[in-house]
Nucleic acid binder design. Structure first.
Lengths: 328, 328
DNA sequence: CCGAGGCTCGACAACGTTGTCATGATGGCG
DNA sequence: CGCCATCATGACAACGTTGTCGAGCCTCGG
């Protein structure tokens, strides 16, 4: 900036005035300054600006599990959209379901003085965020609640969704239904298991632990589970898959088998409608989660100090065929 | 920081020494300082630190078309991975194929003094980056080359891929092949069209403009194009789809039709193998693109000053069935 | 007992920017 | 012509941090 000032024959303060469109600069002077800026390729240093003004950095941080997962990238996109409306940039980082990595990322964002943070919790301990939150940094948790702090949270109706799935299968005559979920220490996985159990109760079906597997989420593991379930004295005729990854892997394992169980998957996914049979799912909108969370965050930044909110977004069952098969 | 100093009864410089693990602080003093830091929830301000040290901000910027598109989110993930190895955070922004938005995002990143930038060009003008590049900021272009600056670029073999696709279809007896591509002002779309034409020449097939449609990339538009092509005196018996979005929309339009053309799609996509028939694609690895680009960027940051490189990543044809159908 | 040298620690400036205030020039008005 | 308001501009401090340098103290060898 001092280079620009020297070249234009003015003081740095005048340059500052020009780049900030402040009034009280003679048009001819402004012209000279702009020419100098152009010639030198000057770009003001936002870091220094924010430091001096004590204003916001114009960034928000987002810690999620894996940007590469379409579910989270849909969320990211929606967040970016909202952030743009509010003139903020988004810093993202993937925790890979590792609590210490989540913490590391979040603290790094804090050190960068983000205006607010969106977190998909990987662990159950979030006490490390308390100092920042007390200092006024809003934090919104997405998809899963925080372990040990009260804060705004945006979830989907995991229990209600799985109840729907079981009811749907039961309505088509299934009485032996299996549940394949993710590791039980993941909040959503656990909730969906609870929903599964409650769905069984409501549908008057016996809940059988032998038909439940939590954890395996690769093809090998799922094939193994399926084999075990098939060998049961009373095998399952239908399966509820606990998330989009599991559904996809399950489909791959089942591909080409003559006898396929009925299936309802949690999470919608692209091309589910074009498979054979089309896959019935519990659908919810990733971008709606991102949008709700981001808007909640920005309302806090706008000064909303009401008590922490817990938003639970609705899910809906999309019948496509795979859940409508009758037990053979 | 001065609060911490006051509370610990030391000067701010000593606090600085403690948070930076500098030697020469008495253990007892350090203890007091750490206690004060903990009590006050102090977190050092990275912005001020970077300003003072004149060092890098530890961030890189990434402008792409849409984080929500699995192709780009795969790239993003790979970039994040590499950035992490080099201790950098990633700022992302979606241009939505809008050149002015791309420019706005890129300049914003510059103002934040990112150490380097990855850009999926939306437009053809990148002169606005010249001042920063001259000032030493490395820029790597991904997926498409820059319009008017020479810089590192990572591409996939668009032409070779489409040539492969045509050869594959021709080998199965097709002589009337259609090409559905994206808008021709998009580099990849145009390259793939060139590859299509060259593929026709090499396979001894007549290149017929009536069977080419560039631009429509929603279901409605694609249905319309298909209708037009089907009404041709010599209709197409096979289609090459120019990218993953077009392939998916095309599949949806074709779903349930009795007579379906053979199909090869550019870009692989999840579940392509489970469709009926499974979709033959020209596959390339999104994460390989991101990895290559990020590594190129960091090699520049490490001081590599060799002339700009153009990396062209290979593609391969994955035969799955949809391209192996013979003309009826 | 003195000086050298090591160990702790603090005062100060500086990074690039902007807010505050002061300065000088200009113009209008009585 | 003198006064005051207005305009255009600059000098300076400050944001939170760290690099430089020097001060004070203690220890140890001569």
């Amino acid at each position: 900036m001092s280079d620009v000032a020297r070249l234009a024959g003015v003081s740095i303060k005048t340059v500052s005035r020009v780049v900030n469109d402040e009034p009280g600069v003679h048009p001819a002077t402004a012209e000279r300054v702009l020419a100098a800026i152009d010639q030198l390729g000057f770009r003001r240093n936002l870091g220094a600006r924010n430091l001096r003004r004590g204003s916001s950095t114009g960034t928000i941080g987002m810690v999620l599990e894996d940007v590469g997962n379409p579910f989270y990238s849909g969320i990211t996109r929606a967040v970016e959209e909202v952030a743009r409306q509010y003139g903020r940039q988004v810093l993202t980082g993937s925790s890979d379901e590792d609590p210490s990595r989540e913490r590391e990322l979040a603290l790094e964002f804090c050190a960068r003085r983000v205006d607010g943070m969106l977190v998909v919790p990987a662990g159950m301990q979030h006490g490390y965020l308390v100092p920042e939150m007390r200092a006024g940094m809003p934090v919104v948790f997405l998809d899963r609640p925080a372990g040990d702090v009260v804060a705004d949270t945006v979830l989907v109706d995991n229990i209600g969704g799985t109840v729907l799935a079981v009811r749907h299968l039961a309505a088509h005559g299934h009485t032996r239904i299996a549940f394949l979920g993710d590791a039980p220490d993941i909040f959503t996985a656990n909730e969906r298991l609870r929903g599964f159990r409650e769905g069984c109760v409501r549908a008057g079906i016996r809940y059988d632990e032998d038909l439940v597997a939590m954890g395996p989420h690769d093809e090998r593991g799922i094939a193994e589970v399926l084999r075990r379930i098939a060998e049961h004295r009373q095998p399952a005729t239908a399966v509820v898959a606990g998330n989009n990854r599991i559904t996809v892997h399950l489909l791959r394992v089942l591909a080409g088998r003559p006898h396929r169980p009925a299936l309802v998957g949690f999470d919608d996914f692209e091309l589910a409608d074009l498979l054979d049979p089309p896959v019935t799912v519990i659908a919810h909108d990733a971008s709606a989660i991102g949008k709700a969370a981001a808007e909640l965050l920005f309302s806090r930044l706008d000064g909303d100090t009401s008590p922490p909110r817990r938003v639970v977004l609705p899910v809906r069952l999309v019948p496509r065929g795979s859940g409508e098969m009758r037990p053979s």
